[in-house]
Design a protein around this nucleic acid. Structure first.
Lengths: 150, 150
DNA sequence: GACGGTCGTCAGAACCTCGAACTAATCTGG
DNA sequence: CCAGATTAGTTCGAGGTTCTGACGACCGTC
């Protein structure tokens, strides 16, 4: 958690990841806001983006977003109240409930996807196709040893 | 903010960055905790890690950590109270004050640096030297267009 | 020396996050 | 088939984080 660059001018890898991550997140969040989806927060978005097309269990959302179940539950409460998601029973397990995108959530999805693609295109243009591929590939590989949820 | 993978099984880049970033952060935070530095929070650490060897202005800390000045000020308050940092006057500007690592902060630094190096070594081993270099290089290049601070 | 801009703080409110404790449903071994 | 262990999710309450807005002090310049 301290800056002791092993080689001059090289930022530590955690910070490098953070900068890029936040840039992406901020871009998408800002675009959604401009498109009229201004009634949710970043924390809510971080959970919402992980909902799969067929719904996702709360516990699964919590794990992949790296928050506790309580936090996830709380955020889903809010998202439900503002019409972005809906809780439905899980047919395979009466204890569980599937969180699904509701009308407003479905409407926001293409906006988010468009900006995501736009930013990725910008990054690809900046890096060049080859280095972009390498970056994606390295990150995906890293995920094998860094993703506790996976 | 939605998952519409352009190609099957490919996670969106924001999520890939997030996973790796959080893995690094959690590792370092946990190691510090084990080493007895258990009286500060993740938010405080995010600010503390950006303090340079000669001290850093509050505004600068806020910008690079991407929080408001008020938030940074609040976190520095706490860090000062627990002996990790100290506020000293900036000789070049009487309005400003330099935030510097205090005794406890200096003690924590090598622990953090060691784990950082350890994790980077693990990642390098997993990816292989070549892909590791490519990852670092791509992230550093990306920073040119994603870092609002620098 | 007056002006606009910058550095940092204070105060207040909203929000996020977690630990503990709980209900309900599932699973497992005898 | 049923008692105990486990898992899904919720509620409650406390503490931490973050922002907006307003402010006093200081800088640089004209």
């Amino acid at each position: 958690m301290a800056d002791v660059p092993p080689e001059p001018d090289e930022l530590n890898t955690g910070l490098l990841l953070f900068v890029a991550y936040r840039a992406m997140e901020n871009r998408i969040f800002a675009a959604l806001e401009r498109a009229g989806f201004d009634d949710f927060t970043l924390a809510q978005a971080r959970v919402m983006q992980r909902i799969g097309p067929d719904g996702t269990r709360l516990t699964e959302l919590a794990e992949s977003a790296q928050v506790t179940k309580q936090t996830a539950s709380h955020l889903v409460d809010q998202l439900e109240r503002t019409g972005y998601v809906r809780r439905t029973p899980d047919p395979t397990d009466a204890r569980a409930r599937l969180v699904r995108l509701a009308e407003r959530g479905v409407a926001a999805q293409p906006v988010a996807a468009a900006v995501l693609a736009e930013v990725e295109d910008e990054w690809r243009a900046h890096l060049g196709e080859r280095r972009w591929r390498q970056l994606r590939e390295a990150l995906a590989s890293l995920r094998e040893i860094t993703d506790p949820y996976r």
